[in-house]
Structures are given as C-alpha cells and as structure tokens.
Design a protein around this nucleic acid. Sequence first.
DNA 1: CATTTCGTTCAGTATTGACTGAACGAAATG
DNA 2: CATTTCGTTCAGTCAATACTGAACGAAATG
Lengths: 167, 167
Amino acid sequence: MLAPRDKLIEDFGLFFEQYGMPRIFGRMYGLLLVTDAPHLSLEQIANELNISKASASTMARQLQAMYIVEKSTVPGDRRDYYRAADGHHIKTVQMKLNASLALSALIQRGARLEGLSPPTRKRLKSMEHFYNRVAVLIDNFFENYREPEEVEHEAPPARRTKPSRSR
Amino acid sequence: MLAPRDKLIEDFGLFFEQYGMPRIFGRMYGLLLVTDAPHLSLEQIANELNISKASASTMARQLQAMYIVEKSTVPGDRRDYYRAADGHHIKTVQMKLNASLALSALIQRGARLEGLSPPTRKRLKSMEHFYNRVAVLIDNFFENYREPEEVEHEAPPARRTKPSRSR
DNA sequence: CATTTCGTTCAGTATTGACTGAACGAAATG
DNA sequence: CATTTCGTTCAGTCAATACTGAACGAAATG
C-alpha cells in the first residue's frame, strides 16, 4: 500500500486529470504542497514522481505560467528550485473568475445578435446578468479577504441541505 | 466570412476547447443558446454543425449529464429534441463550487498528514480556510440570488483596477 | 410483417497530447 | 579548453480521445 502522503499525491493527479490537466501536473502540485522542504529542484521532483527531467521541466513551466508555482534559487547554486507560490490559491480562483467573464462576454455577443426573438434575447441577457453578479461578488470578496490570525480546528462550512425551495 | 452567429458558435467551440472539452461540445452549447427555436432535434443539430448524428447524440448526452441541456419532446413525435436547460448557468457555477470543495478536501487531507512541519501544516490550513470561505460565499449568493425583473442595458461590472494595495 | 424513422452502439480512424530519451547549449569548474 | 552539471528542446512513441459510418434495435406505420 502507498504511504498516505504518496496516495494523496496520486489523488491530486487524478483530481486534475478530471479537469483536463496532465496527471503529472496534479502530482507535481500536490508534491509541492505537502513537502516540508522550502523548495525542490527539478531533479528531486523528477525522482520523487518517477518522471523524466524533461517532463518535470515542462510541467514546472506550465505551473509557473499559471502562477501556482514559482522558481526560487540559492546563492552559488546553478539549479532551479520550485515551490508553491505564496497565495497561489487566491490567484487561481481569480483566474476562474476571469474565465467566467470571458464566457459572459461570449454570451453578451449572443445577446447582441441581430434578429433574435425577444425571448431568446431575454434569456441571454439574464445569463449575462447572472455572470456579472457572480463577478462582482467574487471581486468584493477578494477586496475584503484577509488571512485569519490563527487557524484553529476549522469546522467545515455548513452547506444548505438541498434548498427544497417552494416553487 | 462567417455570419456573426456562426462565428459566435465557433468561438464557443474554441472557448470550451480551451478548458479541455471537445470542440463540438462548445459548438452545440452555443447553438442551443442562440437558437430561436424552442428546441432542436438531433438531426437539426447534426446538420447545422456539420457533424455526424452519432457525435450529436453523444455530445447531447454529455451536455445533459452536466445539466446544461435538457431533452424535450412533442406529442406524437418520436424524435428527441434538446434545448438549453432553464437555469443551467446557475447549476454550472454550483458544480464549480463543488469542485472547489473537493480540492479543499484534498488539501485538508494534506494538512492532516503525520509528521508535517508546522509551517507546512499552517500553509495547508490557510488554504483550506480560504476555500471554505469561498464555498460559504457562493453558497450565500445562491441563497439570495433572484432573477432581475427587467434586464436593461446592463453596464458591465466595474472591476477594481489592480489593487496596488500597500504591502 | 415489411418498411420507415428514430436513437444508440460499436469498430475503426485520425488527431491530439502526454511523456520520454537523447542531443544540445550555456554556464561553471578544473 | 576539456569536463561536468545544469535546463531546455526536439524527435519520436504511446495512449487517450474526438469523431465517423455503418450496423443495429426499438418503435411506429402501412
């Protein structure tokens, strides 16, 4: 059986694979999240994940381009090291927001098409409205979000249990 | 040159392709969004998008599984019709929320690993906290979201212009 | 019961994309 | 200037997946 830590790394791989990313993308991310070392060299990563140095190099650059990971160096050492970027999770959600806005823009283009029937136009407008509201919401959230002073045993957020809202 | 409507459908294809979905997935979605018809048959879809009936069938089922599209029928007609599901955009965002929660769960597992150094554990905890806060936020939003009475010329949401927050 | 008209399934193809090993260039080191 | 040690690039392989056409089954219709 796999050690819990290695199992977790595999699950990171599977999770991101679900969303269209390469499996080793998730594995590398997971590894950098749970490692105690301040950063890992390309070779360490390649060894730990049993992947080629070439793959490690490529993935590291991809993760970096997404602001999830950052390069770090040590004086007198020619190697590149990588670590999970500070606050990368925040940036990640922000980028999802941007994707929503891009989709919203597409929908807006739809709403502006000539010759649409009023109901169709209305539906597109209402979708556009929704996405804009979400955008504002997230935006405000980031405006106000602060790190908590000390994170205790955090209770998982209480989810509404299926609204069953009267309709 | 492509008609604006067809160009838009192509752009839907490209957009979703960007996020790992099949291109015709986005095209079909786009088509169903901008069509004035109350719904389209598999054959109409296949013809309009120049894809095989087999592809149309498969994609329609996939879109349906994601609650984006729904089947509809007419009495005395054996054909299946499809249309953009009412409120599908809301469900879509909700599913993204669930994905965030799943990731949060993975991170939580990380935070619970044995033998982690305090800084590592703290970082994971703080990420977990962040994702939980986002979850609550979105959840509350859905709790309160209502369709606007009449959607006017909607002004695009004012984004903060790069915080440039003092640090 | 033969025929038509649907949708789905299935085998096959073609394209994409993940991943590798080896070659390469750049920088240090002796 | 030869050697070592990095990272990246590139050609190539292998697996996954998008898509098709044809076959099929189910339901209607005559």
